[in-house]
């Protein structure tokens, strides 16, 4: 018998420039996802919510809202890239590719572009990633870069946290 203390997510020290992550799960986006996301965020984009209107623009039907595409591609990347982050610093060079429709399945993949220390916060570092989202045919639906402020293993890894807890008790 064994006890597995699982800690998900990578720390600053774990990333190497050039590392490629093929992220987990994938996600088939359905009409319910699209309507829920678009309405709750006030993105009443007629191409995403009105089928006849979407067709008048030349689409096959309602499109998945591009911001939902972005959030799903981003969400799939979080466990590998930013589960141990404390701040999402920005979005750069974001480009939308082919249109996503209900029923399409998205997968996400990222590359480590750059890493550096945080000048003001020594317990953290900044890592810049480039993420690409693709549909089930392998066509690019989105790409972007994002810099993230991530915890260091030396300060927040399981061993450091155990030492902190011990200190707190004594």
């Amino acid at each position: 018998m064994a006890v597995h203390r699982v800690v998900r997510g990578n720390f600053f020290e774990d990333f190497e420039v050039g590392h490629v992550f093929k992220h987990h799960w994938g996600r088939t986006i359905n009409e319910g996802d699209n309507s829920l996301f678009s309405t709750v965020t006030l993105n009443y984009l007629p191409a995403a919510l009105n089928k006849e209107y979407a067709q008048s623009l030349g689409y096959a039907g309602c499109i998945i809202h591009p911001l939902l595409v972005m959030n799903v591609v981003f969400g799939l990347s979080v466990e590998d890239l930013s589960e141990q982050a404390i701040a999402q610093l920005g979005y750069f060079d974001m480009k939308f590719g082919v249109t996503v429709y209900p029923g399409d399945t998205l997968i996400s993949e990222s590359t480590v572009m750059e890493k550096r220390e945080s000048k003001s916060r020594p317990a953290f570092g900044i890592v810049r990633f480039r993420t690409v989202g693709r549909n089930q045919k392998g066509e690019e639906v989105l790409s972007y870069e994002r810099p993230v402020l991530i915890k260091k293993r030396s300060h927040y890894g399981p061993e450091a946290m155990a030492a902190k807890a011990k200190e707190g008790k004594s």
């Binding site: 998900r8 996802d33 969400g75 404390i86």
Partner: peptide
């Protein structure tokens, strides 16, 4: 909904 697993 978008499977963001960051506990923060």
């Amino acid at each position: 909904l978008v499977m963001n697993t960051a506990q923060v």
